[in-house]
Deep mutational scan, measured.
Amino acid sequence: NITNLCPFDEVFNATRFASVYAWNRKRISNCVADYSVLYNFAPFFAFKCYGVSPTKLNDLCFTNVYADSFVIRGNEVSQIAPGQTGNIADYNYKLPDDFTGCVIAWNSNKLDSKVGGNYNYLYRLFRKSNLKPFERDISTEIYQAGNKPCNGVAGFNCYFPLRSYGFRPTYGVGHQPYRVVVLSFELLHAPATVCGPKKST
Rank of each mutant, 00 (worst) to 15 (best):
N130V: 14
D59Y: 09
F41Y: 15
F17N: 06
V32Y: 10
I142W: 09
I88L: 04
P7H: 09
F44D: 13
Y165C: 02
Y39Q: 15
N13C: 02
A154Q: 14
S19N: 09
S36M: 07
R127K: 07
K132W: 06
G83V: 04
V77Y: 02
T170C: 08
L38W: 05
R25D: 03
Y121S: 06
A42M: 10
A22D: 11
P133C: 04
D59R: 09
R27F: 07
D137R: 00
D137H: 01
T140A: 11
N157W: 07
S113K: 03
P43Q: 07
T201M: 14
R127E: 04
H189Y: 10
N13Y: 01
F45N: 14
G146Y: 06
V32F: 08
T55N: 15
L125C: 13
K114Y: 10
V173K: 14
A46P: 03
P7F: 06
N130A: 13
P197G: 13
K94W: 00
F167S: 05
I88D: 02
V77M: 07
K56M: 12
N24F: 01
R163K: 14
F17Y: 05
N58F: 05
L111I: 12
L57T: 04
G117W: 05
S53R: 09
C150E: 06
E76F: 00
Q84L: 03
I80C: 01
E141A: 11
F47Q: 03
W23E: 03
Y50M: 02
A14G: 05
F126D: 13
V182N: 00
L111F: 10
A33L: 12
D9Y: 12
P96L: 00
N13G: 07
L122S: 15
G172A: 13
Y121C: 06
F47R: 01
P197T: 14
F17C: 03
F156T: 15
L111V: 14
E10P: 03
I28D: 01
P7V: 08
C6R: 02
K110Q: 12
L162N: 03
P43R: 07
P149G: 12
I80K: 02
V52T: 08
S113Q: 05
K199T: 14
R27H: 11
S29L: 06
C158H: 06
S53W: 05
P82E: 01
N109R: 07
K132F: 07
V182Q: 00
P149R: 12
V37S: 14
I138G: 08
W23Q: 04
A105I: 07
N1R: 08
Y171T: 14
T140N: 12
L95R: 00
G83F: 09
N92G: 02
G155V: 06
L60E: 07
Y123N: 06
G174D: 15
N151S: 13
Y121T: 05
F134Y: 14
C49L: 00
N64L: 07
Q176K: 02
S164I: 05
C49K: 00
G117Q: 09
S200F: 12
D34K: 04
S184E: 04
K199N: 14
I80P: 01
L187W: 11
W23M: 04
S164L: 05
V173S: 13
P43Y: 08
S53A: 11
L187N: 15
E10I: 06
F17R: 01
S78V: 08
L183Q: 00
D34E: 05
E186H: 10
F45G: 15
K56G: 10
L187I: 14
I80H: 01
V173D: 14
K148T: 13
S129C: 09
Y123P: 02
D9L: 14
V173R: 12
S129D: 14
Q79N: 04
Y35E: 06
K128I: 07
Y21R: 03
C61M: 08
I88Y: 01
R127S: 06
C150K: 06
Y66S: 07
A33N: 05
G152L: 08
G116Q: 12
F41H: 15
C31L: 05
Y119R: 14
V65D: 01
P197Q: 15
L183F: 05
S78Q: 10
V194Q: 11
Y178H: 15
S19L: 01
F70W: 01
A89H: 03
G172V: 12
S113C: 07
Y178I: 13
V65R: 04
N92A: 02
K110N: 13
R27S: 08
Y123G: 03
N24C: 05
F70P: 01
A33I: 14
A154N: 14
R25A: 02
E10F: 03
K56F: 06
D68Y: 04
Y50A: 01
G83C: 08
G86T: 03
N130C: 10
R27I: 13
A33R: 05
V52G: 02
G146T: 10
R124M: 02
F156R: 15
V153G: 13
N107H: 04
R16K: 14
R179L: 03
Y50W: 13
D90A: 08
T3R: 07
F167E: 05
Q144R: 10
L125R: 15
K199S: 15
E10L: 07
F167D: 05
R16E: 14
I28T: 03
N13L: 04
P133S: 07
G116A: 11
H189V: 09
G172H: 12
F8Q: 01
V173M: 12
D98A: 08
D137Y: 00
F17P: 05
G83H: 10
S19P: 14
L111C: 08
P169A: 08
A14R: 07
V37Q: 15
S164V: 07
G196F: 09
Y35K: 06
N109H: 13
T170N: 13
E76G: 01
P43W: 04
G155R: 09
A190H: 12
Y66P: 02
P177F: 04
I2M: 13
F167C: 02
R16S: 13
